[in-house]
Simulated assay, not measured.
Amino acid sequence: MERPMTWLDDLPAIDLSTLNDAAARQSRVDRKYLLTLDELTELGAHLGDCSVLEIAGQRSGGYSSLYLDTPDLQAYHLAGLERRRRFKVRIRTYASTGEQYLEVKTRDGRGMTHKVRQLHDGSVPLSASAQGFVDTRLSSQGIVLTGPLEPVLTTSYERTTLYLPGDGARATLDLGVRFATAGDEVALDNIAVVETKGGTRPTSFDRLLSALGHRETRMSKYGVGMAALHPELHPEKWAATMRRTLHLV
């Protein structure tokens, strides 16, 4: 897809191996913002020292994620009700390479997000080995599944990743976000999902966004996508974001 900002082309490149060595951030605090494409373009005029991830000459890449949840939507409700310990399970596919990973994200009582993953063949239901990987991670956080995991939502988008050397952190810019399930689809037109992945203190990127008038928002691709495509679900903590910013309810 065509990017709404050309300023990315002027940034120095960083390769994936170097980025992971400098800012893997598998345990981090996630801070999320919603910007219009015009606001994202404006951001480039104020950006400080950073690099952009480049893989095989490309500075953005397609992602898709298949989210798994229990029949009673345990992951959705734990997140939506802001339980101290919550989780997401997904199969992520990278369009540029075709690689797939089974990922488990958990949130601990201190507000830190932890992600573990392993290569996956994309199969659902999960094999016994893959299910064991999920169960082991969840049990380490005191979480027991209420039922079998099943596919409930697919998300897709184009992602650009920035490295913030002064913070040892990264930021992601997701465009063209789409949610799909059972033949229905919702798109976030003219909206970019911006996320910083840093430590307990806000990064320089967070401070810049704040100075430009942008505030953190309650945003979860999984939560918003499920609520948008299932009007019978209570939108939980995402209700205000969906109504005021995304105009999905």
Rank of each mutant, 00 (worst) to 15 (best):
E2S: 12
T6I: 13
L11A: 12
D15K: 08
T18W: 09
L19Y: 13
R25S: 15
E39T: 07
E39H: 12
E39Q: 15
E42G: 11
E42K: 14
L47I: 15
G48P: 12
D49H: 14
C50Q: 12
C50K: 13
V52P: 12
A56L: 13
A56S: 15
G57Q: 05
R59Y: 08
S65N: 15
Y67R: 00
L68D: 03
L68P: 01
D72Q: 02
L73Q: 01
A75H: 01
L81K: 05
E82V: 02
R84E: 11
K88D: 01
K88I: 00
K88F: 01
V89Q: 00
R90K: 06
I91A: 07
T93V: 14
Y94K: 10
G98C: 09
G98L: 06
Q100V: 08
Y101R: 13
E103F: 05
V104W: 06
D108I: 07
R110S: 15
V116K: 13
R117V: 06
Q118H: 12
L119C: 13
H120M: 11
D121I: 08
G122E: 05
S123F: 11
S127L: 11
A130G: 08
Q131I: 07
G132D: 13
V134P: 04
D135V: 13
T136N: 13
G142R: 05
I143W: 05
V144F: 10
E150Q: 14
P151D: 02
P151V: 01
P151S: 03
V152L: 00
T155Q: 02
T155Y: 02
S156Y: 03
E158G: 04
L162Y: 10
L164C: 11
G166N: 14
D167V: 08
R170Q: 11
R170E: 11
A171G: 14
A171R: 09
R178N: 04
R178I: 02
R178C: 05
F179E: 00
F179L: 00
T181F: 00
G183R: 01
E185L: 03
A187P: 02
L188T: 03
I191G: 04
I191D: 04
A192T: 08
A192F: 09
V194I: 15
E195N: 06
T200C: 10
P202Y: 05
T203F: 07
T203Y: 06
R218H: 10
A228I: 00
P231G: 09
P231I: 03
E236Q: 10
A239S: 08
T241L: 03
R243L: 10
R243Y: 06
L246N: 02
H247A: 09
